[in-house]
Simulated scan of single mutants.
Amino acid sequence: MSLTSAGGTSQQAFNNTSKVVDQLGMAIVSGDYAEQTMIPLDPDLEEMFGVSRTVIREAKKTLVGKGLLQSKAKVGTRVRPSSDWSMFDPDVLRWHASLRKPGPFLNELHEIRLIFEPAASAMVARRASPADCEQLTQQFRRMAAATDHVAYAVANIEFHTSILHLSRNRFLSSLGDMVQAALFSVYRIGHDRARIEATGNMQQASIDTYRQLVDAIRQGDAERAEATMADAIVLFRENLS
Rank of each mutant, 00 (worst) to 15 (best):
A34D: 11
K60S: 07
I112W: 05
F171D: 14
M38G: 07
T147D: 13
L175T: 07
V92M: 02
A122D: 00
R142H: 04
A13T: 15
A155G: 12
V21W: 07
L63H: 03
P130I: 01
S206L: 11
D148Q: 07
R94G: 05
L235H: 09
S185C: 03
I207N: 09
D148K: 02
N156V: 01
D84W: 05
R142D: 09
N239H: 09
S206Y: 07
A230G: 15
S86E: 11
K19S: 15
G103T: 12
G76K: 05
E58H: 11
L136C: 02
R170M: 11
R193H: 15
A6C: 10
V214E: 13
G31I: 03
P104N: 01
Q212K: 12
A194F: 10
Q204W: 07
F49I: 03
N201T: 13
Y33T: 11
A181C: 07
L213S: 03
D44Y: 01
L213M: 02
D42A: 13
D221G: 09
Q219R: 13
L183S: 06
E58A: 12
A73W: 09
G25S: 08
L45F: 00
I112N: 08
Q23F: 09
A144Y: 04
A182V: 02
M26V: 15
D231L: 10
F116N: 09
A194M: 13
F236L: 02
T228K: 00
I163T: 03
D221K: 02
V150D: 15
E46I: 06
L166Q: 08
E226K: 09
S83N: 10
A34M: 08
A122S: 11
I28V: 15
I157T: 08
Y152C: 07
T54E: 14
L166N: 04
E35T: 07
A230I: 08
E111G: 01
V55G: 04
A182L: 03
R237E: 09
V20F: 04
Q135F: 05
G176N: 08
R126F: 04
F88T: 14
E134W: 03
A27D: 11
V20Q: 10
L166M: 10
K72R: 14
M229K: 09
N239T: 11
P130N: 02
M202I: 09
A59L: 02
I28W: 02
Q11E: 15
S2L: 01
A97T: 00
T9M: 12
G103Q: 09
F105V: 00
L41Y: 05
T77R: 00
D215T: 06
H191Y: 12
S5T: 15
G50P: 10
A13F: 04
E238N: 14
I196L: 13
K60G: 02
K74Y: 14
S82D: 09
A145M: 05
S206A: 13
S173L: 07
P40T: 00
Y33E: 06
A194I: 15
M38I: 06
A194Y: 08
R195L: 14
D221C: 07
F184P: 03
E117D: 08
I189H: 12
A73T: 14
F49D: 07
K101Q: 13
T37Y: 05
A227N: 10
G65L: 05
N16M: 08
K74C: 11
D132E: 06
K74Q: 12
F184V: 08
N15D: 15
G50L: 07
E223A: 15
L3E: 14
